[in-house]
Amino acid sequence: MEVRSHCPINYVLEHIGDKWSLLIIRDLMFKNKRHYNEFLEGGEKVSTSVLGTRLKQLEEVGLISKGEDDVKKSRIKYSLTQKGIDMLPFMVDMISWSGEYDKETEAGKDFLDQAKHHRDDLLEFFREKLTKEHL
């Protein structure tokens, strides 16, 4: 992938520079969604064309991979790659920031407390979980 500049913020934006990409990563990371139709069921109402494009882009930049479903072989199952799992601290920090300022946040109080007071333990728990489930 060719990037416009090697500014760290630009690099992130070149990989995940839109809300749909971050929501797909969120769904894979925290909501156990693994299939196309599951992503469509999210409350944000992504269109099928946008979803397909974003899944392809995330795969091209190495954040996700697709493979055969364990149960139904004709169905595609999406997984985080190691590069995608390495976004975990970034995602937890975004959730924490949002939880601080969005008084109607959907983030659970326990998760927010854990992220604020025991961040390293929370990251370790999710890193092990995601590695086991996705790699």
Rank of each mutant, 00 (worst) to 15 (best):
V61P: 05
D69E: 04
G62Y: 07
V71T: 13
Y36I: 00
S49F: 14
T48E: 14
K77A: 12
E106K: 05
S5K: 04
G108Y: 02
M29D: 02
N37F: 08
S74K: 13
L51H: 07
M29C: 03
G43P: 06
T81H: 03
T81N: 03
M1A: 13
I95V: 14
V71S: 12
L112C: 12
E104P: 00
R34K: 10
S79K: 13
G67V: 05
E104L: 15
S79M: 03
S98N: 10
L22G: 13
S65Y: 01
I95R: 12
I64F: 03
I76P: 04
V3S: 07
R75K: 13
K132A: 15
E44K: 10
N32K: 14
K116V: 01
H6N: 05
L130P: 05
L51A: 08
Q57D: 06
W20K: 03
R127C: 05
S98K: 09
I9S: 09
L80I: 06
D93I: 00
F125W: 13
F111V: 04
R127E: 11
S65D: 14
K56E: 11
E106N: 06
E59R: 10
S5Q: 06
I64W: 01
R127D: 11
A107C: 11
D27P: 02
A115W: 11
Y101K: 10
E44D: 02
K116F: 04
Q114R: 14
E59S: 10
G99S: 03
E44G: 00
L130S: 11
D110T: 06
V92I: 15
C7Q: 06
L63C: 05
R54K: 13
S47V: 02
I64L: 07
L80W: 02
V92S: 04
D70E: 14
G67R: 04
H118C: 06
F39R: 06
D121A: 15
K45F: 11
L22M: 12
S96N: 02
L123H: 14
S96V: 08
D120E: 15
E68P: 02
P8S: 08
H118Q: 15
V61I: 14
R4D: 06
F111D: 01
K19T: 12
L28E: 10
V12E: 10
R26W: 02
D18M: 01
P89L: 01
L23H: 12
F125A: 12
K19S: 11
K83R: 12
Y11H: 08
D86C: 00
R75Q: 12
V50M: 13
P8A: 07
K19M: 04
I9E: 09
F90P: 01
G108M: 05
M29H: 08
W97T: 09
L112G: 05
L23M: 09
C7W: 07
K73D: 06
S79T: 09
I95E: 11
I16N: 12
E104G: 01
H35S: 00
S5E: 09
R127P: 00
K109S: 15
R75I: 11
S79W: 01
E106M: 12
P89D: 12
L135A: 07
E124V: 00
D70R: 11
E41G: 13
Q114S: 15
D110S: 11
R127H: 14
H118E: 15
D113I: 04
Q57F: 00
K116W: 08
N10W: 06
D113E: 14
E60Y: 01
N32D: 15
H134N: 15
M1C: 05
F30Q: 04
